[in-house]
Design a protein around this nucleic acid. Structure first.
Lengths: 130, 130
DNA sequence: TTGAAAATAGTAATCATTACTATTTCTGAA
DNA sequence: TTCAGAAATAGTAATGATTACTATTTTCAA
């Protein structure tokens, strides 16, 4: 049975009001202002809980810490090879991919994730100046 | 300046002759038969080196260890939610995606990765029996 | 053949995340 | 309301994957 907790509410609210794809650490440091004693473990536990309930998304970057997203509508992300920043990508969902991929696949495909890579606007600019 | 090493050659050969998307640990355990004193660090260093040179691919699964692929031709992967197995997906490359994604993006997109999720053939079968 | 650069083995350290435990907070029924 | 048990927490220790460090060995061009 899931019980209310002020910490979880605050974490959820942070993700609902920020579209910055923060890491657990970033969320932790912010929530610390309201709950000085909150522990990083609590942040991780609640982020996992919210992700498992489908209220937020967990974005795994391959290297470095995971990022989280309060926007659960299907959309893609970009990850900067230089600074690691995560940005939303404005592209229509490729819903046909799961069916296409399942054509020659004996198991069951339930979804896919597409991540784009390259240089974010800031890093791209500073590269060109060099 | 890159120098030859028998260990690196053996690692490369393992990936060229196995299409199982092994982890560093798996490669390590196999190569240990030929080089009993090889260290896990050497395996990681060479896998990173080969990946940086574009001779192999590193596949990040989100949770659990990374997998490696000797097949550098563009293709997609499936990762089993149950057992973590990595399989190739037979689907035509979606080359148009990068251009589509770049349309409303101020930075520079150099590529993308699409990973499929679900149940592999084995896990799907045992699920249905329960 | 040789000597400097690069690679190695073995080990310690790091980073992100999870596990553990004593204490605190919720919450639903009395 | 009060209270007991379940769930959540803070604080800390532990884990797992990977990287860093260092003394020794290997490679290879002169």
């Amino acid at each position: 049975m899931l019980k209310y907790s002020r910490q979880r509410e605050s974490i959820k609210e942070y993700l609902d009001t920020h579209r910055t794809h923060p890491t657990a650490e970033t969320v932790y440091l912010d929530i610390k202002q309201e709950f000085p004693n909150i522990s990083l473990g609590t942040v991780y536990r609640n982020l996992n809980l919210l992700a498992d309930m489908g209220e937020i998304l967990r974005l795994s970057s391959g290297n470095g810490p995971d990022h989280y997203d309060g926007n659960t509508a299907p959309h893609c992300h970009f990850m900067c090879n230089e600074c690691g920043k995560v940005l939303d990508i404005d592209i229509e969902p490729q819903d046909q991919l799961d069916k296409l991929a399942g054509k020659h696949f004996a198991g069951k495909i339930t979804g896919h994730v597409t991540q784009f890579f390259g240089l974010c606007p800031e890093c791209n600019n500073s590269k060109q100046k060099n």
